[in-house]
Design a protein around this nucleic acid. Sequence first.
DNA 1: ATGTCAAATAATATCGATATTTTTGGAGTC
DNA 2: GACTCCAAAAATATCGATATTATTTGACAT
Lengths: 221, 221
Amino acid sequence: MGAMLDTEGKETSATHGAYRRLREMILTGVLPPGQKLKIEQLRGLLDTGASPVREALSLLTSDMLVERIDQRGFRAAPVSKCNFEEILLLRCNLEETALHASITNADAAWEDRLVLRHHHMKKASQNGARDFENAHKAFHMALLDNSKMPLLLRYCSQLYDLNIRYRYLAAGGSSYKKRDIAAEHQQILDAALNHDADSATRHLIDHYRRTGEYLSSQMEP
Amino acid sequence: MGAMLDTEGKETSATHGAYRRLREMILTGVLPPGQKLKIEQLRGLLDTGASPVREALSLLTSDMLVERIDQRGFRAAPVSKCNFEEILLLRCNLEETALHASITNADAAWEDRLVLRHHHMKKASQNGARDFENAHKAFHMALLDNSKMPLLLRYCSQLYDLNIRYRYLAAGGSSYKKRDIAAEHQQILDAALNHDADSATRHLIDHYRRTGEYLSSQMEP
DNA sequence: ATGTCAAATAATATCGATATTTTTGGAGTC
DNA sequence: GACTCCAAAAATATCGATATTATTTGACAT
């Protein structure tokens, strides 16, 4: 048995589907930090077998969203102010490198992609938080991806996700209300299109630091 | 059955054992870059079941030593000059940050650890290449680990391993013969013990770049 | 000869079941 | 009354088998 029952046909494999769903649940705080992740429980929740669940948890381990404990199974990675500050610091460091390199390699195709992503992000801000999150990440990654450095991009993507998790935990998904985020994005975009690497990185890092300070202030010690 | 047959009692779990052995085989080039990694073949080679093998391969995927292809299984990650240069660049960037932070947090206990690791490394250089490699990594990680930044250390460790792989591929494990590596290590150690962050990072990065240039020259385009 | 399609083969992905280990709970002792 | 030790329960890790998907082979038509 075990036939293909999904009518949607979206998930390529059970493992990948489990990975994506678990990942989203951890990022958005549905599975809270430190929570024990029992195979049987998740098997029921995701309606799949134990093997895909185990493999998905293994993959999430390397994204640092799940921790493996000895022979005692898995749990959602804990959070701490200290961890958050490390993420912020590394992000600033790595994204500065990546954005510099991206601008060094700047060409028309990249600029087009950038403008497009920015436009999509603005459009998505009318829709739900889910849509905006995706578009927001796509814009930020587009800023970096012209660096043509796959390892660096991977790290930036990982750190982005770790960071977004704190945003969900602190503010239920959108701490965007107070500041004029749109203006900050516009400044970064403009500087990038002008090939002004220093200005672009400065705006980008300010953008992160400001969000970081806000989130930090929301957290206990 | 599946009883505990290992007389050594070293491996905690079949998965972890498979992970370590596969990892070593990929790092040292026993499993060459790009090679298809068939479950059945590895199952026989490691004398274990399919589940531990799969899970080990999943973990290696996140170390970027193994690539997963669609629904077509796994293969050892390919290599390229471009990839090598990215590793070198990121290593310089991240280890500079880590070493600076380590020295900022410097205390007597750290200095003791450092001296000890350096001593062990010197002693191990008389033994086989395997022993030296382990001691060498331990020394380099000890330089960084006082930064108290777990994510950063993890990335540094990953990149160290990716780099060592190129050394094995280029020179069969030891490209140490030409230069006076011992002197370079001594310089780094002395600067670190003097809390001279700038000098230490400069020596460290020179150390990497020199090795990098040598390896780069050994590679095709 | 060459390209195409279908059956056969091989490999992967997944399931269900078992063995191992950890945790829990309670009886007996100091 | 608190602590240790042993049995019961739960959870994990692993195995063997099956279903699914990719790859190869070979026959057929062009």
